[in-house]
Write a protein that binds this DNA or RNA. Sequence first.
DNA 1: ACCACGCTTGAATCTTACA
DNA 2: CTGTAAGATTCAAGCGTGG
Lengths: 340, 340
Amino acid sequence: MRLLPAGSIDCVFADPPYNLQLRGELRRPDDSIVDGVDDDWDRFGDFAEYDRFTRAWLVEVRRLLRKDGTLWVIGSYHNIFRIGSMLQDLGYWILNDVIWRKSNPMPNFRGRRFTNAHETMIWAARGRDSRYRFNYQAMKALNDDVQMRSDWLLPLCTGPERLRNEHGLKLHPTQKPESLLHRVLLASTGVDDIVLDPFAGTGTTPAVARRLRRHFIGIERHPDYAEAAIGRVRRERPLPMDSVMTTTNRREVARVPFGSLVERGLLSAGTILTDRQRRVAATVAPDGSLVSGSVRGSIHKVGAALTNAPSCNGWTFWHFEEAGVLQPLDVLRTRSLETA
Amino acid sequence: MRLLPAGSIDCVFADPPYNLQLRGELRRPDDSIVDGVDDDWDRFGDFAEYDRFTRAWLVEVRRLLRKDGTLWVIGSYHNIFRIGSMLQDLGYWILNDVIWRKSNPMPNFRGRRFTNAHETMIWAARGRDSRYRFNYQAMKALNDDVQMRSDWLLPLCTGPERLRNEHGLKLHPTQKPESLLHRVLLASTGVDDIVLDPFAGTGTTPAVARRLRRHFIGIERHPDYAEAAIGRVRRERPLPMDSVMTTTNRREVARVPFGSLVERGLLSAGTILTDRQRRVAATVAPDGSLVSGSVRGSIHKVGAALTNAPSCNGWTFWHFEEAGVLQPLDVLRTRSLETA
DNA sequence: ACCACGCTTGAATCTTACA
DNA sequence: CTGTAAGATTCAAGCGTGG
């Protein structure tokens, strides 16, 4: 990471070691043994050591992120609180904590706790003043046209997606499902963005990034994981360009001044605008302002004034008559883009 | 809290301030953060203040908890990471993080983030060696007879449950739903346990505790909230004793030695027992031991030996024939309790 | 082709009473 | 305190096999 230039990364997804502290073996009710995470890379002496490790990579990630970039970190209760605190201490700005609800978690075999059925992701901007990217409309479209919530129900990574070694055993103990990365990248990156995964493992992030036509950098120190990741990414094919274009955000639409619509003749000066119920009315002035009695100003200001509201979206409030039908101003904005 | 004796509390539920003013105080025009990582802590003096406050009450709660007691804390991403870290630093032992999924959350009006549709609870024992209480069977019964997961779907506190002042405005900004406390107390306390809520607000914890026949101590410094809480608790009536008794854990059921069943004639010496598939068999000896060839011992040991298993629950492994049907030994244990 | 059934498995801080 | 024995404990999916 130290070799990469500052401010060069749009989005980071990090799945760091969780610092699990397992004691002894765990057996299922049928006496088979649970294949838990006992790898060296997940062993830390104490919280202080884990905190030093965490701080080091979070500082470095922050150096690499451009000002408006965002970071995703996934973890469990063993480590996520330490990570969240440190994010705040380092000046990151938490945007959401997102819960990955597992549809098929491992049960609690001893009946001593609630089934550990979720993991937590933190989504944070580099700083409080970041103008971060959030593809609101794409998320809404992905969720049957209602806002995407902070809890996501997704299955574990199993079946053919799970990478296995020559003995048929899982290659990596904690391979994340591609569906999770799909949603993460769709929510917070755009085509050709640069995505970094500092704990790339078997390459889920790079693979999904390539599929979605994002650029990617994956870092992994374990040779077996890295090798598997490289092969996996090579096998992955970018989706056709038109299929990775998602519903665009309103705010991504190039801003169109109302005046320019008048200027370009999409709406004539003198046209009378009304609200949908035709309760108030105003006239379009040649400079793109509206006039209604003694009130004059932008489409938003006049709309607010006439309804005694603190604010008003003039694009959806004001309507004009066309072929006997009331149309919101917004349709003109769309037309102006099509004819630009 | 300083007036209460050490080790006097079975369970604490805490809904501390979420540190919302912190966000206001952190609103700075200049966010030019130095990547030098050693001197940034004092820039977050407000976090430090919140941490001092948090540490103080968590230390005091730990003094009050008996060794096997547990603590619940609820929070959002603004404060829960700081609380979780501090719990770990203070020696608490996290058992679960539990997600309260709100069925009716407030939407995100600006469309700049995911709908914040959950809050996080941490359930922790006083220490790593706590033999904490978890009413596993009661939770399972509450969840259609499958294990209760770490994500709970419950509605916000609305309607008649929501306390309002004389102007019809909500009395407390973050009144928690009684259903949440119902599940918390049912999971981790028993009848006549002592429950403490150090941030009692309008008394949801005391009210539900009283209803479920738990003793309670609520602390609240705001006079309006305290007054409302007192009235609310007074109006609350404890449920009839038989309706607060829940499914009991098997571990709590009085232990019945297998030998006593033979002694009392519920099973004759000489009876032949088999496993459910009739693959192995053993004979009941008059002293309550089993014999199978050269193997002799308890129902558990012989079951384990004949199946080459490290352990075996003889009560569910061994069956006897009754009216042509194979019955597990466990049914005799139930009968013995009924006829005791 | 389809279904029933059994086997496997997944980031897990996973027992307790009594001698 | 330690050692020993009793005995409590699993859900959703995917996959393979055999009828």
